[in-house]
């Protein structure tokens, strides 16, 4: 059963732009991405939007729907009131390209700054043995579909452009945690560089990243806080300080 839906879609580019009202048909069971596509096919042929899988697997269709960062393909139209106007804007933490498409290159730059996985030197392919319980923690973080909704929501950069250079963001804190917890990774200084180079200390654990993660990765509880605790181990731990162990652990 088709009904009419009122939308406000942000249209424009880096020079200017604003919210445009449109009315479009919507059918039972449709998600926001469906109605955007209908707008595109019937009213605004050049409306820019990113998407790929339409099943919440690729993380392309990130945008803000009624002010909340979400995946358009996983947001049911039925989750809003029937006569509510739905406002759709691009991600607001990143530079705008056009309409609903933002420039997310910041994230790819940060990805290149995280030191890669380093396997043991003498391990031959096929010989690795890892227990399921040892890989599970890192596997949770590897569920990340790189939608960058967490990056977009994090107030450290959303509200402070100048912090972008010194802050890797939650997506990459889980990457660091993943490697630090990887049973075979041998690179030693991940904790220290997390704090000193990637801006772990900038995070004030206000958990917005966790709130928006469509993969339900417990970013703050399972990655950021454990990493902060690991940093405490090597930098601020009372027992270790008194035991003078701090010096020895510096290399970690």
């Amino acid at each position: 059963m088709a009904r009419k839906l009122n939308l406000r879609i942000w249209r424009g580019d880096s020079t200017d732009g604003g919210l445009k009202d449109v009315q479009v048909d919507v059918n039972e069971g449709e998600v926001v991405l469906d109605v955007i596509h209908r707008v595109q096919a019937t009213q605004m042929g050049d409306l820019a939007v990113r998407w790929n899988c339409k099943a919440g697997k690729c993380g392309s269709c990130s945008m803000e729907i009624n002010g909340k960062p979400r995946l358009a393909c996983m947001t049911q139209v039925a989750s809003f009131d029937e006569n509510e106007t739905i406002t759709i804007t691009p991600l607001r933490a990143f530079p705008i390209i056009k309409d609903l498409v933002a420039d997310v290159s910041f994230n790819y730059k940060k990805a290149m700054e995280i030191p890669a996985y380093e396997p043991p030197k003498n391990l031959a392919p096929g010989e690795a043995r890892m227990e399921q319980i040892d890989v599970e923690r890192s596997q949770e973080f590897r569920k990340c579909i790189e939608c960058f909704l967490c990056q977009n929501t994090c107030h450290v950069i959303r509200d402070h452009e100048e912090n972008k250079k010194s802050f890797a963001g939650p997506r990459f804190f889980i990457r660091i945690a993943e490697l630090d917890m990887h049973p075979l990774d041998i690179l030693k200084n991940r904790k220290r560089t997390a704090q000193e180079e990637h801006g772990l200390g900038m995070c004030n654990i206000t958990k917005c990243c966790t709130e928006v993660c469509p993969e339900h990765i417990r970013i703050t509880d399972n990655a950021i806080i454990p990493m902060k605790e690991r940093v405490v181990d090597i930098k601020y731990d009372p027992a270790r300080m008194f035991a003078g162990l701090l010096k020895r652990e510096k290399r970690n």
Binding site: E64, G67, K68, P69, R92, T153, H155, V156, R158, D159, H160, N163, G199, G201, M202, C203, N204, T206, C208, E211, V212, K228, E229, V231, V232, K235, Y236, D237, P238
Partner: peptide
């Protein structure tokens, strides 16, 4: 800082828990 997710915070500067006094949060273990 922030009042809620995706709600702009009022502050113009933000350094998180990287310097005094908030760096003392690391004393939680004590």
């Amino acid at each position: 800082s922030p009042p809620a997710c995706a709600v702009a915070e009022p502050h113009t500067k933000y350094t998180g828990e990287t310097r005094a006094p908030l760096i003392l949060q690391n004393a939680h273990r004590w």
